[in-house]
């Protein structure tokens, strides 16, 4: 810069607008990242499948037809509807030991799995964020809160689920609660670590010295920095919640067996696994693809949202 002290400092408008052009928008960067694109498409597909299950040829997932038990995938059978009509139906993914259509069950199962994944992620992130902000910013609360969190982390999720089921009975709320509780401390730790590093930034100290009240400092200057890592952590929680739900249902301590979830379907197929592997195969594939997609989305988001990592792209 050649400007002397007495001249006003000209800001090179052209240079700064060139910098602005170079900075591709967030969505542009997200779309350019392959794992974000693939992950988002697959997750979107699963959501559509869950929502549009009735339009995709799925019938009542709980309807039993004793004449069509243990069918191989792709077999056609005449069955009676509850109304008493006889219809011909193709069992695309075969049927289970009670003659229920696995295709319909898997499609409807997507609903439960996604609801659990998203709800658990949203709840644990929301609760963890609030607790983490408090523990990170208000010094004296840090010790007590973090020791409680350590305690919560020590509770094995499956044991908690068994305990809760015996008290409250099996159900969606019980399962969600049992998965949320051990996940909260993970979010709290993450948020707290971000807060601890950001609160030492000079711009936060500048905000303190211009008299900004503490809640505003948290909301304006600290909270935005936690969003990127939280989105990433949220997707991982979402994926693991679906897995844990499947595990709980598989063990028979999750969602009641009449509700179709991927875990339940696999749990019921367990005893016939050697003769009829399709009973476990199809829900297994759906679960694996969904979890993979959510994880890819999370990985991609981390790469795109973290400025240090995004430089490599």
């Amino acid at each position: 810069m050649t400007a002397t002290a007495d001249e006003p400092v000209e800001i090179d408008v052209a240079a700064s607008s060139a910098a602005a052009v170079k900075k591709v928008g967030l969505f542009g960067r997200l779309a350019r990242n392959q794992s974000v694109a693939i992950g988002a498409v697959l997750v979107g597909l699963m959501i559509l499948i869950g929502l549009l299950a009735p339009l995709l040829g799925a019938t009542d997932p709980t309807a039993i037809s004793p004449a069509a038990r243990n069918l191989k995938p792709g077999v056609e059978r005449n069955i009676f509807t509850p109304a008493g009509e006889q219809v011909t139906r193709t069992f695309w993914m075969g049927s289970d030991s009670l003659g229920r259509d696995i295709y319909s069950r898997v499609l409807y199962g997507a609903r439960i799995s996604l609801i659990i994944g998203v709800t658990v992620a949203a709840l644990s992130v929301a609760i963890g964020l609030v607790i983490g902000l408090i523990a990170g910013y208000i010094r004296w609360t840090d010790g007590p809160i973090m020791r409680v969190m350590d305690g919560m982390m020590a509770i094995p999720g499956i044991l908690l689920a068994i305990g809760l089921v015996s008290v409250w009975g099996a159900g969606l709320v019980t399962v969600i609660f049992a998965i949320v509780v051990p996940d909260i401390p993970r979010v709290v730790r993450l948020v707290r670590s971000v807060v601890l590093s950001i609160r030492e930034e000079p711009y936060v100290e500048a905000a303190i010295s211009v008299g900004t009240p503490v809640p505003l400092i948290m909301f304006r200057h600290i909270l935005p920095n936690t969003i990127a890592p939280l989105i990433v952590q949220g997707t991982f929680i979402c994926a693991s919640a679906m897995l844990v739900e499947a595990t709980l249902s598989f063990l028979g301590i999750g969602i009641p067996p009449d509700v179709p979830t991927w875990g339940n379907i696999m749990s019921e197929g367990r005893s016939y696994f050697r003769i009829h592997p399709h009973m476990i195969l199809f829900p297994g594939i759906f679960l694996a693809v969904t979890v993979l997609a959510v994880n890819m989305l999370g990985d991609g988001l981390r790469d795109t949202l973290d400025p240090r990592l995004s430089k490599r792209i």
Partner: peptide, 25 residues
């Protein structure tokens, strides 16, 4: 009492326009 810090790259919140930073106080 107001303070100006050493590191000009960390003294301003990167997510807020400079006018927001100046009028905050």
């Amino acid at each position: 009492i107001q303070i100006v810090f050493q590191d000009p790259y960390r003294s301003l919140n990167p997510r807020r326009t400079v006018v927001e930073s100046v009028i905050e106080g």
